[in-house]
Design a protein around this nucleic acid. Structure first.
Lengths: 111, 111
DNA sequence: TTAATATATACGTTGACATGTATATACGTT
DNA sequence: AACGTATATACATGTCAACGTATATATTAA
């Protein structure tokens, strides 16, 4: 599990505007001006955020005349998805412990 | 889906030291001095990071004499887990499109 | 070539946050 | 009570990153 790549992804999408860009791009590819319109931030800021996301490997670009169409890269999100899956032990273990506790109580009642 | 809560969680665990604290606490509860030893940062810094994580609802504390034992809260990680699951469409759709493409090619070959 | 549209970059300013040092608080032991 | 250990907080400092404004680059159209 490549934690430093995940940290970069986390750091990148933790910024509120970029988080919103991710939410938007999840619905499908969008041009810069699409994003400017959808979220309420200036064009240079959007370009800058997209640059940062691109550097982090979270998006890729396609040219269409003067427009740049941005899409989400799947891999980094898959990685984080897998990482968060590994947390499931956190709550499953608790349920197991609860089960153990309940069994123990039952046993005590029967004695 | 509570995006503002998720953003807070992301922002909190994106910081490298706190990310490492999460990785450590995933293995089980730890005292402050445990964490100080495991990661290589000063005690006040660890306390401060734990304070921030606590404010964000990511950890809870139990007292044991002078020690404070920190554990991960399950819920915020469950939320992010669910959110990242929603990205699966991202790559599944692509596979679907690939399937479509392959079917089309086959059809063309048969004509 | 000139103009128009779409996007990217440069730069100065500002605010937020992480760090280190010092100190306060909490709890236990003698 | 006095001391030691464990943890939390206060404060000054430095760094980084986001923002706004201005401008550069790219692409198409006239």
């Amino acid at each position: 599990m490549n934690t430093s790549a995940m940290q970069l992804t986390l750091l990148t999408i933790a910024e509120p505007n970029r988080f919103n860009i991710v939410e938007l791009l999840k619905k499908g590819p969008r041009s810069v001006s699409d994003i400017v319109q959808a979220l309420n931030i200036g064009q240079p800021q959007v370009s800058r955020h997209l640059r940062i996301m691109s550097d982090a490997g979270l998006v890729y670009v396609e040219r269409k005349a003067q427009q740049r169409i941005y899409s989400l890269e799947a891999q980094p999100f898959q990685e984080l998805d897998a990482w968060f899956d590994s947390f499931s032990r956190l709550w499953e273990d608790r349920l197991d412990k609860l089960d153990d506790l309940l069994s123990e109580i039952k046993r005590e009642e029967q004695e």
